[in-house]
């Protein structure tokens, strides 16, 4: 079976339709987070920001598309699962837990889940 049908190849997903975009998801452990802000600087699409002041300061993920359109509800819009936030975080408080996928022309094929580097020694 072909990886992608002709119809899929030809159709461009609508980015303001959350059905067409399954975005990557960031998981934040607010108990470990000390609000140092390094991940905010490291984030590729700049979707991390702080909300509130003082004790209530909390790391949040912007759920709006950068083009100003839809809010994608449950998912963390526009995360690309690069995990640069995880690498820079000294507290181990943040991590991308799933990768992005789009429908139609940009759907992911022949790919699996996120995995750490493997040695294949055993």
């Amino acid at each position: 079976m072909a990886l992608m049908s002709f119809g899929e190849k030809m159709r461009i997903p609508s980015y303001d339709n959350s059905e067409h975009c399954k975005m990557a998801r960031v998981s934040i452990d607010h108990e470990k987070c000390n609000c140092c802000g390094l991940c905010v600087k490291a984030c590729l699409p700049s979707i991390l920001y702080f909300e509130g002041k003082g004790k209530d300061r909390k790391l949040q993920v912007n759920r709006n598309r950068p083009t100003g359109g839809c809010e994608t509800g449950d998912v963390n819009c526009y995360c690309v699962a690069c995990n640069d936030c995880m690498a820079i975080c000294e507290q181990g408080a943040i991590k991308a837990v799933s990768s992005a996928d789009y429908k139609y022309r940009y759907k992911q094929v022949m790919r699996g889940e996120l995995a750490m580097p493997r040695t294949f020694n055993s």
């Binding site: 390094l38 600087k41 490291a42 690498a87 820079i88 790919r111 699996g112 996120l114 995995a115």
Partner: peptide, 15 residues
Amino acid sequence: PVGKPDGMVPREIHH
């Protein structure tokens, strides 16, 4: 760099 941005991270497995 500011901070220590280096480190191994998970990435998608390519078949």
